[in-house]
Design a protein around this nucleic acid. Structure first.
Lengths: 342, 342
DNA sequence: TTGTATGCGTTATCAA
DNA sequence: TTGATAACGCATACAA
C-alpha cells in the first residue's frame, strides 16, 4: 500500500546528473550552477519530492527534535507551556515529541528512554509526582542530550532550569491575605517530595513569620492537591472548633475550587467569613462566584523561555556565560474571594 | 559535547561476535543462542546501549510515529483528544509528533509537510478554520500515509474519520430548550466552511422545524465563536425590540460564557428570562452561576478511538471490512442555565 | 545458530 | 561546478 517515494536519485536520474548535485541544490548550497539548481527544484516539485528527514537525521547525527515529558498533556498549565514551546520552535523547524508520564515514575522512565532512542536533541521535563530515583535523567545527560527541567525540577540535578519563584509568589499571596485582615490562615499543601510544593509552603511560613503570626500545625493539610482532596481537607478544617478564616490552596486552583464548593455548602460566606486563594490562574477562577484570587504562572511565556534557552545554549557553546536557572516571577491576581477591604 | 553512543558494533566487538547477532538478540529473534542472547543483553545494559531509532526506522521504512495537527494544543477539547491518543499509542510504543496550526491554513500546510518529511506512519488532523484548499491532505494520501480526520473534517476527502454527531446533538439541545418552554431561540453559529458548524446549525433548524417554530433570521448570528464575539452577538440580540428568550451558543462554551456575562450585565435573569446552552462541556460550565447546559464530546474517548482505528486499519489490511467513519454521539448535559421547569 | 554483505536516503569529503 | 564514494546505525537475505 505504501508507494515508493521520490528520492534524490529519482530526480538525478531524470535530469541525468548525480544525486550529490541534487542534494546540494536542495540544501541551497553555493556550489551548484544557478540554472541546474532551478531545474532541480522545479523537477523536485513536479515529482512531489519530500525530503526523508530520517535519512537526513541519521547522516547528520541530529534530529532537530525536542522531546517533552509532562505529567499530563491536558492540564492547562502544561498544555500552555507546550503551546509556548511549539510556538517558539516551529519557526526554527524543530519538531516536538510529546509524552505524558501520568505522574508515574515508571512511565516517566520509559518516556525518557524512548526519547533517547529517538535521538532527540533536547529533553524538556517536568517530573512526575512520585519521581524519586533520577538515574534516567542522568542518563539523558550522559547521552549528550541537553536536559531542561521546568516547574517541577529536581534541584540536585545540575541542568538548565526554568522555574517559577514559588516561594516569593506564596509569600505575596499569604501577605495579601494577612493585609486583608485574615488571621487564621490554613494551607493546603502538595506532595513535599516535589520542590515546588516545598517552596510554596516555605513562602507561607515566611509570610506568617514576617507578620508574627504563629504557625498552627492543624491548619496545614497534607496532600490536598486535587479538587476532591481539597474539598476533603476543607471539610476537616471548617469543622474545627476554631476554623480558619482563610485557606491558601497552594497546590492548584482545582483544589481551591474544592474549597469554595465545600465552604459554600457549609454556609461560610466568601470572602467575608473565609478567604480563598488558589494557584495557577486556571481560566475558571475568573468566573466562579465569587471569582478566585490566584497566582498566574505565565505558562505560555514559560514555554517560549524554555525553547529560547535551548537555542541560546546551542548557539553560544562556551562563548558566553548563560544563566543556568531562569526564574519567572509569577503574579498574584487579586479577585473577589479574598477582597474584603476597600 | 555529544559523546559517542554505544552501537551494536561496540557490543559485538566486546563480545567477539558480529553486529548481526547483536541485532538479532536485541530484537529477540529466535535465531540466537539463548546464552549469547543473555550475554548480549547484559553487555548492552552495561554499556548503557540505547537503540538508534532513527537508523532502525530508516532501515525498516516505518517510523512508529503518529503526527497530530490541531488548531491549538492548549484548547481543552484538543488537549484531551491528544491525551487520549497518547494513552492508547503509548502501550504500542508509538510516538506522537504534535503540531498546532493556529487556525492558519499556511501553517497547517507546513505542519503536514513536516510530518510527511518525518515519515510518520499516520497523520491525525482537525483542520483549521481558514482551511479551504486541501491539496496538502491529498498529498498525505499520495505518500501512502494513513490519514485520519477528526472533529473538523473535510467531508469530500475520503479518509478515515472520527466525528461527533453534531447535528443530532444540536437537535437534542434545541429540543430540550423548546421543551423547557423557550420560544424565541437564537443561534450563535460558527464559520460555515467548517462542517461541524454547518451540522450544528442544521440540527438547530431541524429542531425548530420539528416543533413547527418559524425560523427568524435575525436570531441567527454569524461567526460568534469566541467569548468576545459571543458577547457582542448577545448584546445585539438582547437589544432587539423582541429579544430571544434562549440562546444556543453552538460554537463553544466560551461563546456561551460571553452570553452569560452580557445577559447578567444587562439584567436578564438566567434561566427564567433567558436560557443558555453551550457546546463542549468545558470544565468551567459546571461552576458558573448558574451552571451552563452544554454538550459533552467525550474528547479523551475520541482520542482513544482514533488511535485504535489506526491500529485496526493497520492490522487487518483488506481482511476485514472496517467502518471508515466513526461517529460518536455527544451527550447533552442539562444544567441550571436552561432548567426552568421542575 | 552465526557471519557476510548489502541497502535504507541522505550528506560530506575528496577528486576531477 | 560536478561526480564518485563512503558513512550514519541498523536489519535482513543469504551463505556457511
Amino acid at each position: 500500500m505504501r508507494k515508493k517515494r521520490t528520492t534524490i536519485y529519482d530526480i538525478a536520474e531524470k535530469l541525468n546528473i548525480t544525486a550529490s548535485s541534487v542534494s546540494r541544490a536542495l540544501n541551497n548550497s553555493n556550489y551548484v550552477n544557478e540554472n541546474t539548481k532551478k531545474l532541480i527544484l522545479k523537477t523536485a516539485a513536479e515529482l512531489n519530492y519530500k525530503r526523508n528527514t530520517i535519512a537526513s537525521n541519521l547522516r547528520s547525527g541530529q534530529s532537530k527534535t525536542i522531546g517533552i515529558v509532562v505529567p499530563r498533556i491536558n492540564q492547562n498549565f502544561f498544555a500552555n507551556v507546550i503551546a509556548g514551546i511549539e510556538d517558539a520552535t516551529y519557526e526554527k523547524n524543530y519538531n516536538l515529541i510529546i509524552c505524558q508520564s501520568n505522574e508515574q515514575e515508571e512511565k516517566e522512565v520509559k518516556c525518557v528512554n524512548t526519547l533517547i532512542n529517538q535521538q532527540v536533541d533536547c529533553i524538556v521535563i517536568s517530573v512526575s509526582a512520585d519521581s524519586h530515583d533520577h538515574t534516567h535523567l542522568k542518563n539523558v545527560i550522559e547521552h549528550g542530550i541537553q536536559l531542561i527541567q521546568f516547574d517541577r525540577v529536581v534541584d540536585e540535578l545540575e541542568t538548565l532550569k526554568v522555574i517559577n519563584d514559588n516561594e516569593q509568589a506564596s509569600l505575596e499571596a499569604v501577605s495579601h491575605l494577612i493585609e486583608q485582615g485574615y488571621k487564621r490562615i490554613a494551607l493546603l499543601e502538595g506532595p513535599q517530595n516535589l520542590d515546588i510544593f516545598k517552596q510554596r509552603k516555605a513562602g507561607y511560613l515566611k509570610a506568617l513569620k514576617k507578620h508574627k503570626i504563629p504557625v498552627v500545625h492543624d491548619l496545614i493539610i497534607e496532600n490536598a492537591w486535587t479538587k476532591e482532596l481539597g474539598a476533603e481537607g476543607t471539610r476537616k478544617l471548617l469543622s474545627m472548633p476554631k476554623p480558619p478564616d482563610a485557606i491558601f490552596a497552594s497546590t492548584s486552583d482545582f483544589s481551591a475550587l474544592g474549597v469554595l464548593e465545600v465552604a459554600t455548602a457549609m454556609g461560610f460566606k466568601v470572602p467575608s467569613e473565609l478567604g480563598i486563594c488558589g494557584y495557577s490562574n486556571e481560566a475558571f477562577t475568573e468566573i466562579t462566584s465569587p471569582s478566585i484570587t490566584t497566582i498566574d504562572q505565565f505558562s505560555i511565556y514559560m514555554g517560549k523561555t524554555i525553547a529560547n534557552l535551548y537555542f541560546q545554549e546551542m548557539e553560544n557553546k562556551e562563548t558566553e556565560v548563560i544563566p543556568k536557572i531562569i526564574s519567572i516571577k509569577p503574579k498574584l491576581i487579586i479577585r473577589s474571594s479574598t477582597s474584603r477591604k476597600g
